[in-house]
Amino acid sequence: MTEIVMECKNLWKIYKDIVAVRDVSLQIREGEIKLIFGPSGSGKSTLLRCLAMLTTPTKGDVFLRGECLTKPGVDLNKARARIGFVFQHIYLFHHLTALGNVELALRHVLKLPKDEARKRAMSALEEVKMEKWANYYPAQLSGGQQQRVGIARALARNPDIILLDEPTSALDPELTGEVIDTLRDLAKKGTTMLIVSHEMPFAQEVADEMIFFDEGTIVETGTPEHFFTNPSTERAKKFMMRLIKRTRRE
């Protein structure tokens, strides 16, 4: 068995009167790709943000390579530097070019010298096939191109794991393909990823495990094979039916 990269144990996130994440435990091992899916508003994004410590979990623990991130006194900036995060709505820095977006963390988090930061940023852009657009500002790029830069920004630091929060769902349908292709490339290279997505053919192709998430908690886990042929819970069955119908329509 390979090493566990990220793990959470009995994780809860409670806002005033809403339980967004309810007692979730999961593990992602080196090179593994896990895919979370489920109805919108079920707490998937909140879970991902808790794992990246972008929001503090109410209860429970998050571990990154065995190091507990939820105990007091942990340097969270250092921890976040080792976690890549890709947002549904991308959130590129508007005032920086594609290259500037990717370079920023290399310069000011990893503190690389200018030339080296530039070289690594360029090679990250090459990985997502955006090197030709290095000097364009986000507003000059299409949604799909922006998201590829978002992915380059997340992976340029060589993080231990990349968390992707519905990376294609805010894009026009004709632009999802290029982003999915990029993710497929990353999968081939053995990048450890936890992806929230409803792109089913893609899931079937790359996911080692799928996690059906509803009402803030894990309802069912299994291989894509399992979910596509015979999910055991009624809720998962219904949801899969709807997804497959939708995919066919597209």
Binding site: R80, R82, Y91, L92, F93, V109, R157
Partner: peptide, 18 residues
């Protein structure tokens, strides 16, 4: 400009000040 830009920056490991 919104909290999202701040969150995206923090997600890279930048400190709040940076």
């Amino acid at each position: 400009i919104g909290d999202e830009q701040m969150m995206a920056a923090m997600s890279l490991g930048l400190s709040k000040v940076k």
